[in-house]
Amino acid sequence: MSELAPARRSPIRGRIATAAITSAGFVALLWAIEIVDTVMGNRLDYSGIQPREIDGLWGILWAPLLHGGWQHLLANSGPALVLIFVITLSGLALWAEATAIIWVVAGVGTWLIAQPNSVHIGASSLIFGWITFLVLRGIFARSALQIVVGVLALGAYGSVLWGVFPGQQGISWQGHLFGAIGGVVAAVLLGRRARENNATPTAG
């Protein structure tokens, strides 16, 4: 009677599973929060970013998790699923670091320049950041594969980037703009680090 060694899990399958769980889990969190917000009579929506108000600084932490109704959440859910999945294929830590940079840059920028007496909420700031991160990461990492991914991301979501300009009433273009800037910052920092880590030392 022979004993069979357990099959090793494919690294590619493992990354796909991690990416799928991460993207689905994040979006599920957004939906759970919106359910709670609805039950509470939409009171959580006022916990977003309130520009240049000291108490409004707390909104930087919560704004991307809050949405102004189900239509708003639904519009962000699809892009979030796709973009989180694609970024996390390169590593969960990479997605977490890029998201943290985008989150802070988008929040602080919105707090500084958005119109007073307003509240800014929604994951679209992260979505704009994830798009620009994907588009530019490969350039700074000098990775041909990631450049191809960036071109595909630009083709799929490039038209969305017009949302960084002032336009439709009630849309936080400031959040979009600084989310996109946060994605650029993340691409520069994390892309250069990846390039340095992959550099092969040569003997002098």
Rank of each mutant, 00 (worst) to 15 (best):
A93H: 07
Y46E: 10
E196W: 13
L66E: 08
L145T: 09
G78T: 10
V39F: 12
G175D: 05
R43Y: 02
L57H: 03
L92I: 07
L189A: 15
D37C: 04
A203T: 13
G183M: 04
W58H: 07
P79I: 01
V119A: 11
R193G: 14
F165M: 15
F133W: 12
S10W: 00
T202L: 15
V27I: 09
V185L: 09
L4V: 14
I60G: 09
H67A: 15
T88P: 04
L161C: 06
F128V: 02
A63T: 05
V108C: 10
S47N: 03
I84F: 07
V82I: 15
L89K: 04
G48W: 00
G14L: 10
Q71T: 14
I60S: 11
T132L: 15
G107S: 12
R192V: 13
G167W: 05
E3L: 14
I102C: 07
Q169S: 13
P64I: 09
N117L: 11
I49C: 02
G204T: 03
V185T: 07
G91Y: 06
V164R: 01
V119G: 09
Y46A: 15
L112C: 09
S159P: 00
G163K: 01
R43H: 08
P64A: 05
G191M: 03
S10Y: 01
F133N: 02
L81F: 11
I54T: 11
Y157K: 03
V188C: 02
W58S: 13
W95S: 06
I171Q: 11
H120F: 09
T22R: 12
V135F: 08
G59T: 04
V135Y: 05
F85P: 08
T99L: 14
L44N: 08
G122Q: 04
I127P: 05
P201E: 07
T99P: 01
T88C: 12
I35R: 04
A20H: 07
G14W: 05
D37R: 10
V149G: 01
T38K: 06
G25R: 10
